[in-house]
Design a protein around this nucleic acid. Structure first.
Lengths: 130, 130
DNA sequence: TCACCTTCTTGACAGACGTCAAAGAGGTGG
DNA sequence: CCACCTCTTTGACGTCTGTCAAGAAGGTGA
């Protein structure tokens, strides 16, 4: 797939189509799900997510997150942006600092779609960039 | 992460540690989970998976799978290998043809890990790895 | 206004990924 | 053995991704 996957904004805001309900997964549904999975499929982003999930309000500012993964701030910013673009995090300014917060429903929606291996239905609005 | 993610063989064969149980996700756990998510995070592989899941025994041979995604056989073979390497599919020869079958537990384990992280703690502290 | 702080964007680079054509490997049947 | 079939490996190509340094953008306080 040399073709670029679309940004979340350009695809269905609802995550995600069922995985095992029919023999054919619509290509658009496949892309929508792949975009979200790809956002999660990175060790750094998973570590950031784990840190956030363990915080009181499942949120933290960039300055706290960079040390967690021991990478430069621009790099961390890049990862956070990617998570936000997939609806997994939201972003909010507090004075000088920026707080990122987990959107649990987004992760849950992905998990449920995968478990579609047991299959129920989809449809849960995922928050999209603020 | 310019560093190559390891093959599944080189990491824990069981998926996966809890996502939200502690503030820090061990880098090895993060990699183990990322490898599996990355295997799923491709539209073509999701389509292949959906097709397989819809089959009677959740299995099919390569010759049936190539038409599903309308790609060349080598490419499909490449994707199937990747899914197999992450433990999501198993492979078995039947005479001339090769059958790939879904390992539902593998997908379920990933889904559960995501959900575990999302809804906080309990469950599954068993990091499992054998 | 200015100095300062936190965060993001840009540009560049190496490495990984998805794709195909061509050739190889494994198996069947004459 | 040989022709044939199915599937995988190899090699090459363009694109995407993760990383950092440098600089810009946004906000605070004097």
């Amino acid at each position: 797939m040399p073709k670029t996957l679309p940004l979340l904004d350009d695809i269905s805001p609802i995550c995600c189509g069922p995985l095992g309900n029919s023999a054919t997964l619509d290509i658009d549904d496949a892309i929508a799900l792949a975009v979200r999975l790809k956002a999660l499929a990175d060790p750094v982003r998973l570590q950031l997510l784990a840190y956030l999930l363990a915080q009181p309000n499942q949120e933290a500012c960039t300055c706290d997150l960079a040390p967690v993964v021991k990478l430069s701030e621009p790099t961390v910013s890049h990862h956070l942006k990617k998570l936000q673009a997939s609806g997994i995090l939201t972003k909010e300014r507090h004075g000088m600092s920026v707080h990122y917060r987990v959107v649990p429903e987004a992760i849950h929606a992905i998990a449920r779609t995968l478990d579609t291996g047991t299959w129920a239905q989809p449809a849960l609005a995922a928050g999209i960039r603020s």
